[in-house]
Design a protein around this nucleic acid. Structure first.
Length: 397
DNA sequence: CCATGAAACCTTGCCACAGAAAAGT
DNA sequence: TAACTTTTCTGTGGCAAGGTTTCAT
């Protein structure tokens, strides 16, 4: 099975293979026409340059070794794997052998953002026209966006001082958090990490000055690189429409981004700089909080004890106290870009775990212990299935 | 227009277990 | 230092309980 959350590769430019073009970022795709390994940004730049370039066939780099072009897509893991890794991983144990794999399809056209697979395991290629269809609506919402975006710019001292968007009852004047805790998300949308880059010499590639919108898109949605190997499986429900629940979540996400007003939240923060151990992220939050953010945090910080968030280890993010008009405009623009790419679908990070969870016996919704008989039956089933097909198939329900 | 109760909706915690990562030898 | 073993921790889905919001009266 694939390794989980190994961020080592992302830390300190120790990627197995870097982009052949910029040489500052990890490669994510391999262009067959150019025989080049490219990062997302360079891939977008190069292959959006002209029609000929856009026809170059590319494949994702193997998510396991991150060195070779992917040859197979494992449906169970939703992972793109090279031939060697595929053989290695799927010969590890009988369960892994049951994973269904299909030859990976090349990417063509101009794709933007991270790899995503649909239900059929095919790569979703975003059209450059996608944005233009939103323009009308986007313009209509510009004014609203402006206000909303402004509310996100908590660094605005007026906003902070009047408390209109902050129910924080802590009146301690020395408290400079002002939403910084909750800025785990805010950070993602406003790229405050960039302000940290100057004080943190060993920042990863995201702090490079050539941050394009494409790179921002990497933050906005889970990306395979963030997990250093295992896959991300976006989940859509039913006909793919955003559910009411998701809409509400978005609403809360928009207006209670800082968690100050979200009363039902279980997160128990204390504003004197400590966090209690009851921080809880619901399953819905998984889709709301970009995982890349979480992984970014873990890039430089080792795993913390269960139930804690280690926000105070490591370098302190320096918050600018004033924003110039240009800074503000840039932030609003970036905010809008990310708003377009927000995804509220629940993200399944480990499809194999999902498969296990779905097969697991339950009592009133809770997982229950498997009896010996059930284990035996399961083993018999898997053995006979593998005997018949040679390849294992993860059962679908 | 306000108060009250009911209904609908939403959030959270719980459970077992495979597997990844860390820690120990 | 490498190899191996043990321990710790995470993520997964369905249900129930309890909290919140909405609506009718």
């Amino acid at each position: 099975m694939l390794k989980e959350e190994s961020n080592d590769a992302a830390a300190g430019n120790s990627w197995p293979r870097i982009c052949d073009t910029c040489r500052v970022a990890a490669c994510t795709v391999y262009c067959r026409a150019d025989s080049a390994y490219l990062c997302s940004g360079c891939d977008a730049t190069i292959h959006a340059a002209n029609r000929v370039a856009s026809r170059h066939e590319r494949v994702w780099v193997c998510e396991a070794c991150e060195r070779a072009p992917a040859a197979f897509l494992c449906k169970a893991d939703a992972a793109s794997l090279c031939t060697a890794c595929d053989a290695d991983i799927h010969s590890a144990n009988p369960l892994a052998r049951r994973h269904q794999r299909v030859p990976i399809l090349p990417i063509s056209g101009f794709h933007r953002g991270p790899p995503a697979t649909d239900h059929g395991g095919q790569i979703i290629v975003e059209s450059t026209l996608a944005d233009t269809t939103e323009d009308g609506l986007d313009e209509a919402m510009d004014e609203e966006d402006e206000d909303e975006a402004a509310s996100w710019l908590l660094l605005n001292p007026v906003k902070n001082s009047n408390g209109s968007n902050n129910n924080n009852t802590n009146n301690n004047p020395s408290n400079n958090n002002n939403g910084f805790f909750f800025g785990v998300e805010m950070d993602d949308y406003l790229d405050l990490v960039e302000y940290n880059s100057s004080s943190c010499a060993d920042q990863n590639q995201f702090s490079t000055t050539s941050a394009t919108n494409d790179q921002h898109n990497q933050y906005a949605v889970p990306h395979k690189i963030s997990y250093g190997g295992d896959s991300v499986v976006p989940v859509q429900y039913g006909d793919g429409k955003v559910t009411q629940m998701q809409m509400q979540q978005q609403h809360k996400h928009n207006f209670h981004q800082l968690g100050m007003e979200y009363e039902s939240s279980k997160a128990a923060y204390s504003y004197d700089g400590s966090i209690t151990h009851t921080v809880s992220v619901s399953s819905m939050d998984v889709g709301v909080v970009p995982d890349s953010t979480m992984s970014d945090m873990s890039v430089s910080h080792p795993r913390t004890p269960k139930g804690t968030i280690d926000l105070f280890n490591g370098p302190t993010i320096q918050m600018p106290t004033q924003l110039s008009p240009m800074d503000r405009e840039a932030r609003v623009l970036r905010y809008r870009e990310k708003k377009k790419t927000r995804k509220f679908e629940k993200t399944i990070r480990y499809a194999s775990r999902k498969a296990y969870a779905e097969t697991r016996p339950r009592i009133k919704g809770r997982f229950a212990k498997r009896t010996d008989i059930e284990v035996e039956v399961d083993q018999m089933f898997s053995t006979s299935l593998m005997g018949e097909t040679g390849y294992g198939i993860v059962p679908s329900f």
